[in-house]
Each structure stands twice: as structure tokens, then as C-alpha cells.
Design a protein around this nucleic acid. Sequence first.
DNA 1: TAAATAAGTCAACATGGCTGACATAAAATC
DNA 2: GATTTTATGTCAGCCATGTTGACTTATTTA
Lengths: 164, 164
Amino acid sequence: MADIKSGTPTLYLRDEELRKGIELLYFAYRDHNGVPDEILAEYGFGRAHHRVLHFVARSPGLAVSELLGVLRITKQSLSRVLKELVEKGYVRQETGARDRRQRPLYLTDKGSELERRLSAVQRERMARAYREAGAEAVAGFWRVLFGLIDADGRDAIKTFIEKP
Amino acid sequence: MADIKSGTPTLYLRDEELRKGIELLYFAYRDHNGVPDEILAEYGFGRAHHRVLHFVARSPGLAVSELLGVLRITKQSLSRVLKELVEKGYVRQETGARDRRQRPLYLTDKGSELERRLSAVQRERMARAYREAGAEAVAGFWRVLFGLIDADGRDAIKTFIEKP
DNA sequence: TAAATAAGTCAACATGGCTGACATAAAATC
DNA sequence: GATTTTATGTCAGCCATGTTGACTTATTTA
């Protein structure tokens, strides 16, 4: 209705396109995490555990503070899941070589195994989507997702992901 | 390190590409919901309320069972947020015309206002990402996201979104 | 008339965010 | 060398939102 007054008819199409992105993002994100959630439940874990496993697998030796920066949660929230992962033998903490206050994080063999199991189902789904959509679509997928990330978020992930 | 032993160099690129999609999806989804979450908090609402507002705005007159089907949550979970939205005057429930057991959902003026406020910030961010990425990228974005959705999920959203 | 369906409700539990306060060890600074 | 800052950990409690299970009411369908 605001559209009628605004006199910019192209806005209709535009809004429809924006809404489509918003909804697809919601449904895709949900289904992308569906199977991993079921697997995690077998272990008494949740999505938060998965994130820790993912980023520790991604950057072995990651400091706790670095992980906090990536996840953008409080240390109390992280502590809860990290503690469980360490106690159950999925994550190992060493003492920092340069700075002995730090506790660099590593996956144990058991942790690597679970991480691979979880990421396998996500990678398979992602691979299927890539295959169905084609290489050009994949490049566009990355570009738009990157554009959705906050300015400081883009900065924070620079070490992980180069600008697509 | 496992990679060095595996001897399948083509796998590197592929896995890197899949991981990139997985991580970008995580960061983009998080930031996409950041500002709306803050706005919702002003009203004492959460993301679940936003979803209800979104889909009721999207399909006025939606039956409760249809909303449950789209959101894929239990009616007890929905009940909690729907009740609040109705009590606080953001959502209105009528009695179904054809089937009087149904309670078609509509946004009140107040509800529409909030929904527009929430969707505005998401649409602005999405528009910025579209603009930065270009029209071709947007098409690819849709195609890959669609491919990430479960087979039955694709079915369920047919009424909302045509296959990109 | 009986059975199925749409919606609502109560209770209890789990996950994973949050704030606030405080403790310890190590590094950095004065 | 003493002090301050930093990295990490911990306790306690709150909130939002998902779950299961059991049960009710009104209405439609068979």
C-alpha cells in the first residue's frame, strides 16, 4: 500500500525478490542443520557443540578468545559446551607455547570423527545443491551471502574466508 | 595433515568450496537476524514471534495448522508465542468461514507496523547484498538455497516460492 | 451417532543464549 | 619488583524457544 503512493512500481518486483531471499534463507538454513541436529542428539550434544567442533577442526590450536570472537557468544555460554566436549573427550586443551595463559584447542581423534560425520552430511547436501545449481550459481551464492554479513563480521572472518 | 596423505588433490578445492558455503551460510544467517532480534527485544518478543508475524503477513488468513506446517514446530511451541501476539494485539484470530473449527490469522494494524519495521531492516540488508553482488549472483543465490531445502520442504513452500 | 480433525491448554524438561560477580595464573607495564 | 591487565574458568540465575505427553472442546466428516 505504501507502494501505491510511492509511485515506484518497480518496487513491487524488488520487494518480492527480497522476500524470496529472506524466506529461502530461512528454509535453507533450517534444513541444512536438520540432519546434524539429529546426529548431535545421539551424543547428547546440540548445535552449539557442532559450532565448536567445526571451528576447532577448521583452525586447530585456536585460542578460546579467538573462538569467542568467531562465535560472538559469551564465554559463559561457550564454557558450558566446551566443558562437555573436553570432559567427554572430543576436544583437547593444551597450554599456549608463546602465551601460557592461552589454552589452544584441538580435536581428539574421537572429536575429529564426530566432526567429520557431521560435516559430511552438510557437505553432501551442499554438494548436491551446488551440482543442481551450477558453478556460476555457486559464485553468486557466495557473493550474496558475503554481502549479508556485517562489516565487522566480514573483518572477523577474513582469516577464514577471502572475499568471494 | 590428513590431506597430505590422502593423495586426492582435486578434493581440496571441492571441500574448500563446500566449507565456504557452510560457513558463509552460518555468518550470513546470524547477521541477517541480528538487528531484528534487537528490535524484537524492545517488545519483549523473540525470533519465534518474528516468524509468525512474517508468515501471517505473507499469507493473511493462514490457518493455525498451515502455520504449523510451514514452521515445522509443535503446536505447543507455537501456542506460546501466538498467544502473546494475540493478547498484546499484534495478531487477530477469526473463525473460519468454510470450516468454523479453523482460526484464520491476520495481523492487526499494530502487527503490520511491527512486521514492516522488522522486515524493513532485513530487506535493506538483503537489497544491499543484492546490489553489491549483481543480478546474476542473486539468481545463483536463490538456486543454491533452494537446493539446500529438503524434498518435502520444497513441496511445503511451493505455495510461497516458485522454484528459482 | 460415532469418529476424525482443528485448535487450545497444562505440565515438565532441554538447549543455549544472557547478565553479574568473582577467582586464578600469566604477561605486560610502571 | 610491584601493579595492572589479560586469558581463562566458574557459580548462580534468568529468558526464549524447542520438545514430549496427556487431555479438552468444538466442529466436521463418515
